[in-house]
Structures are given as C-alpha cells and as structure tokens.
C-alpha cells in the first residue's frame, strides 16, 4: 500500500481547534525540557549529598547513603514512577492525598515525574560523585585537614572542585539520559514529546511524519546538550590535570 506523505499536516489546525499540530509538538517539547531540567537539579543536589556521604568516615551515614543508592538503582524507573503516581497519594493522610489528587492533573503528573526522575537519577549521580572523590589522591584530603580546614571545608574547597571536573564526562551522559528517561512520563499521561507522538498518530493518521518529527526533536536535544557540555568541559579544564591534555 502506498503511503501518502503529508508534511503539511503540522500546519493544520487540530480537529479540537485548540492549536496546530505543530503547536502540539512544541508543547510536548516544552514539557520534556522542563521536566528534564527540573529533575536534573534535584538529581545534582541530592546526588552530590548522597555521593559525599558515601565517602565520609562514618559507618551509619555511609551505610544509609549506600542503601539509598541501591534502592533507587535496583527498581525499574517505570515501577518507581507508578509508585510515586498511583501508590503514594493513597498512602498519604487522606486529606493531603485528596488535595494532591484534586489538583490540576498536569501538575500531578509533572510533580510525580519530576520527583521520580530526580531521585532515580540522583542515585546514579551519587555513584559518579563517589568514584570521583575516591579517584583523588588521598594526600589531598590529608593536606586539606593539615591546613586546618574542617572536613566539610575540605570537601567544599579541595575535593569537590576536582571531583566535579573528573566526573564531568559521565555526568554529561547522565544528563542526556534524563532527557531520554523523561519519555517514561508518557505512561502517566504527561503530554511530553513521546505522548504527543502517539496523539498525533491518533489524530492525524500520519504516523510516519509524527514519529519522524519527534525522533528528530530528541536527536536535536541530544546534540544541543552534548555541544553545551563540551563547551563547559573546555571552560573548567585544569591545565596539567585529567582532561587538561
């Protein structure tokens, strides 16, 4: 059966009259990007804290941090998302759970997906942070302490600045992953890019155009992020050290 290509379909107003189909795509892009960026902030902050805790000389703290990482790394992202979205509101005190469930659906979907993606990725970031810190020569920490810094100060001024630079490449790939993983939010109905791809198939009956357009947008996101992270790597490079060439 010959396929009727029709790229102009994106310029047509949607049958529901709220926008053009191109507008639907851009809405999807907007949600994908804002979900990924806000989850990334959570992942960086929590991942740094947990990663640092895994390296501190306190069995309880490091044990707790290890448990956190193992928990979020060993349950599939989709299952975690459903637990955040379907299970948690039922376990909250009824008043709080109902308030959440009666809020704007988009907000519920976005909030669940953001927290889920953020925590899921934070466990991975924590592993990178830990290996970054562990890869530094032990003398650095000793030197910092000998100079009279407190342990938090040693982390803040000596260890972390180097560790971050070392783990920048793996962090870049985690950052890229978060954009890809954000597509999982389609399962709870958030109108991000891959959801819009499915809606476009349903509404326009032009499946190839819809899927190609959305795939291209994901590739573009990927290329843009890689470009920006390369620039960042060049900028923070310490001459004579790893990555400094």
């Amino acid at each position: 059966m010959a396929y009727n290509w029709n790229w102009e379909v994106f310029l047509q107003p949607s049958v529901t009259g709220d926008d053009t189909y191109l507008g639907w795509l851009l809405t999807g892009l907007k949600w994908t990007v804002s979900l990924s960026l806000s989850a990334w902030v959570i992942a960086l902050v929590l991942g740094t804290i947990v990663g640092v805790l895994r390296t501190v000389p306190n069995r309880w703290l490091s044990g707790l941090a290890t448990a956190y990482v193992e928990l979020f790394r060993n349950i599939p992202l989709l299952v975690q998302l459903f637990i955040w979205y379907f299970v948690l509101p039922e376990l909250l005190p009824p008043a709080l759970g109902d308030a959440f469930k009666q809020s704007h659906p988009l907000w519920q979907q976005f909030f669940s997906a953001m927290v889920c993606l953020g925590l899921f990725t934070s466990a991975r970031v924590a592993e990178q942070v830990r290996s970054g810190i562990n890869s530094l020569p032990r003398g650095q920490k000793a030197a910092g302490l000998a100079m009279g810094f407190t342990l938090p100060q040693v982390y803040r001024h000596v260890l972390m600045p180097m560790a971050y630079r070392i783990i920048l490449p793996p962090l870049t790939s985690e950052f890229l992953n978060i954009f890809k993983n954000s597509a999982v939010a389609t399962t709870i109905g958030l109108i991000e890019l891959s959801r819009q791809a499915q809606q476009l198939v349903d509404y326009t009956a032009q499946p190839y155009e819809a899927f190609i357009a959305v795939t291209v947008l994901y590739v573009l996101i990927n290329v843009t992020v890689m470009f920006l992270m390369r620039r960042l790597e060049e900028k923070v490079r310490v001459p004579g050290f790893i990555g400094g060439k």
């Binding site: 049958v15 529901t16 009259g17 709220d18 659906p105 109905g189 499915q198 809606q199």
Partner: peptide
C-alpha cells in the same frame, strides 16, 4: 485517550471555554 469523547470534551473546552482539566 483516542475516543470520540476525548474529542468532544476538548471541543467543548475550546468552544464554551469551560476550563475543564481533561485527563486522557
């Protein structure tokens, strides 16, 4: 998602400005 009701609801939102939050 994908039903005639979904289209009817969305159209209702557009034409009558009912400001419903539609979950598909």
């Amino acid at each position: 998602a994908g039903t005639t009701s979904e289209r009817l609801l969305r159209r209702m939102n557009e034409e009558k400005q009912m400001k419903m939050n539609i979950i598909s």
